[in-house]
C-alpha cells in the first residue's frame, strides 16, 4: 500500500486573486518537488484540466500563463474518473484505489471540503504522518520498505553508495534478529522522530540527549566497544548526487530492543541497530541526520 495525493479545483482559492493562487501553487510545487516519488504520487481526475482550462480561459495571455502554471506543474497522473467519484473514494473508509490510500490536497487557509479533516493533506508534515501510518498498517518486505522510507523521510540522508566496495546501502534489515517484519514500527518510529528533529550544530552531546528523550529505546554513541574498534571503523561514505562525502562518523546508534508491541514485555534483543551520523558537509548551520545502517549490530 502506498499514498496518493489528489488535486481538485477546490484545492486552491481560485476566487482570491492571482497573487494568492500563485503563492498556493508555489507551496504545492515545493511539496511535489520534495515528495513526488514511487511511494507518494500526485493525482488529478480526468476532468481536472478541462475544468481549470474552462475556468481560466480568457483572451488575456496573463490567464494563459496561469493555465500553464497549473498544467506544467510537474508529474501529476490522471485517474480514470471524474472529480465527484474521486472525492467519494477519498471520503470512504479506507480510501483505497489501486493499492493506494488517497487524500485530497488543500492549500493552507482554504476551505476544507472532505468529510473528515484527516482525508485532507495540507503540507509535508501531514503527508509524512499519513505515510507513516501506511508503513505501520501495511507491512512490506524489507527492500520495498527501504525504498519507501527514502521516499518519505526527506530530511534524512540514507546511505546508498553502489560504488563502495563494502558499504553500499543502509538497508540490512533482512539481518535483523527476530525478523524484520517484527520491528517495522520501531524502525518507522525512529525515522519519523529523527526526520522531525532539528539538529543543533556542533553539539553532539545535546543532540543525543534530546533525541533520546523523544524515542522509546536507547540511543547513544559508541561506548565500551569503541576501544576495540579500528579508528574510523564506523565511518561511512555518503554519495549525494554525484558527490561522495567521505568518512562521516556514524557511531551513533539506536537499539531496536523489542519486537513491535512488546516494549518492556517480550524478549530483549541486543543485536539490532540503527547507526547514524550528523552530516554537516553541505550546510554546517543545518546539519542533517545520515542513516548509515539499519540491521544487525556492527
Amino acid at each position: 500500500m502506498k499514498a496518493g495525493v489528489c488535486l481538485f479545483l477546490e484545492s486552491f482559492s481560485l476566487d482570491r486573486g492571482e497573487k494568492i493562487i500563485l503563492e498556493q501553487l508555489s507551496h504545492l510545487r515545493s511539496l511535489m518537488a520534495r515528495m513526488n516519488s514511487e511511494f507518494i504520487k500526485f493525482y488529478k481526475s480526468n476532468e481536472y484540466d478541462c475544468k481549470l482550462a474552462t475556468m481560466f480561459y480568457s483572451t488575456s495571455p496573463d490567464m494563459a500563463w496561469m493555465m500553464g502554471q497549473f498544467y506544467d506543474m510537474g508529474k501529476i497522473d490522471t485517474l480514470p474518473m471524474d472529480c465527484d467519484n474521486l472525492l467519494k473514494i477519498i471520503n470512504s473508509v479506507p480510501p483505497v484505489y489501486n493499492s493506494r490510500m488517497l487524500y485530497m490536497y488543500n492549500s493552507i487557509d482554504n476551505t476544507i471540503v472532505t468529510e473528515n479533516r484527516q482525508s485532507t493533506v495540507l503540507n509535508e508534515k501531514e503527508l509524512v504522518i499519513i505515510c507513516r501510518n501506511i508503513l505501520d498498517s501495511f507491512p512490506s518486505e524489507y527492500i520495498e520498505y527501504g525504498n519507501s522510507v527514502k521516499d518519505i523521510f526527506k530530511n534524512l540522508i540514507f546511505l546508498e553508495n553502489e560504488e563502495h566496495p563494502t558499504f553500499k546501502t543502509f538497508n540490512s534489515m533482512n539481518k535483523i534478529k527476530g525478523g524484520f517484519e517484527n520491528f517495522i514500527r520501531g524502525i518507522t518510529e525512529f525515522l519519523f522522530v529523527v526526520n522531525n528533529y532539528e539538529v543543533i550544530p556542533q553539539d553532539t552531546f545535546k543532540n543525543i540527549k534530546q533525541m533520546s528523550a523523544l524515542l522509546r529505546y536507547e540511543l547513544c554513541e559508541e561506548g565500551g566497544k569503541k576501544s576495540e574498534r579500528k579508528q574510523g571503523e564506523l565511518n561511512r561514505d555518503f554519495k549525494i548526487g554525484n558527490i561522495v562525502y567521505k568518512d562521516i562518523n556514524c557511531e551513533f546508534h539506536y537499539k531496536l530492543s523489542y519486537k513491535d508491541g512488546q516494549f518492556n514485555k517480550g524478549t530483549y534483543y541486543n543485536d539490532n541497530r540503527i547507526y547514524f551520523g550528523f552530516f554537516n558537509r553541505i550546510d554546517p548551520s543545518k546539519p542533517m541526520i545520515a542513516v548509515a545502517h539499519i540491521g544487525e549490530h556492527l
Partner: peptide
C-alpha cells in the same frame, strides 16, 4: 494591467493552452 484584451489581440497563447489542457479546439468563447 490592460483595460481590455480583445479577441484576436494576444489570445493565441490562451487558445493554445486551452487546447493543450483539454484536447479540444473549441474554446469557451
Amino acid at each position: 494591467k490592460l483595460s481590455s484584451w480583445p479577441k484576436g489581440f494576444f489570445d493565441q497563447q490562451s487558445i493554445d493552452m486551452y487546447t493543450i489542457m483539454t484536447g479540444s479546439f473549441d474554446t469557451p468563447d
